[in-house]
């Protein structure tokens, strides 16, 4: 139980996918204009990352058994993620048209979100040695971390809309600087010794 807590805290704060690992920057910048859409994207990513962690875990086991993991990992994981996103889209359209409409274009866009591929590769890393449950928790927490980052960022960007900025700084330039500043703020978590706090 404690190991799961450590994994999720690590994935959300210490090595946040966006702000510490610098994965998934494209949607982070692309759909962070409004908090609403940022939340929608975040929830879609949580779902896909959790599912991708589960399925790629099985695929990884299969690859390792045949000794192909080294060079087949990336391509087969991308295949899995693409299929998964397609499948999720179909299920959502059938069962929950409301959510499907709310997520809209963001759902298929997740296919190219490198945070999803990132979590699959991290789970597959023998150095981490995650079991099935740990991998899923890592995927879920990674998604939560992504959502946290993008919602925080969207909130700040909404305020920036009305800030008196020099012409050259308007729009993306200031957004990039802002992203850097949030990343530096999250750097504060990197010295966090959760094990010591819990007395381990």
């Amino acid at each position: 139980m404690v190991d799961l807590l450590l994994i999720s805290f690590g994935a959300i704060f210490i090595s946040n996918f966006v702000l510490a690992r610098f994965l998934g920057i494209c949607p982070f910048l692309g759909v962070s204009r409004k908090i609403e859409t940022a939340l929608g994207m975040g929830f879609a990513v949580i779902f896909v990352m959790t599912m991708a962690s589960a399925i790629t875990y099985g695929v990884q086991k299969l690859l390792v058994r045949h000794g192909l993991a080294e060079f087949l990992q990336t391509i087969s994981f991308i295949l899995v993620i693409a299929v998964l996103v397609q499948f999720v889209e179909m299920i959502l359209r059938k069962t929950s048209p409301g959510l499907y409409q709310a997520l809209g274009i963001y759902l298929p866009l997740i296919t190219t979100n490198c945070a999803v591929l990132g979590v699959a590769l991290i789970n597959a890393d023998p150095g981490e040695g995650y079991n099935f449950i740990q991998a899923m928790v890592n995927g879920f927490s990674g998604g939560v971390g992504f959502t946290l980052a993008i919602v925080l960022f969207a909130g700040l960007r909404e305020r920036l809309e009305f800030a008196p900025l020099p012409k050259a700084m308007e729009g993306f330039p200031i957004a990039l600087i802002l992203a850097g500043l949030i990343s530096i703020a999250f750097l504060g978590f990197s010295g966090f010794r959760l094990q010591a706090l819990l007395g381990l």
């Binding site: 192909l68 087949l72 899995v80 499948f87 179909m90």
Partner: peptide, 24 residues
Amino acid sequence: AAVLLLTGLGVLFGIGLAVASRKL
């Protein structure tokens, strides 16, 4: 083995998606 495995996975997923798109 690599080609077979990837083809196998692709065919499996393809059939899965085709069935799913019919059912759903």
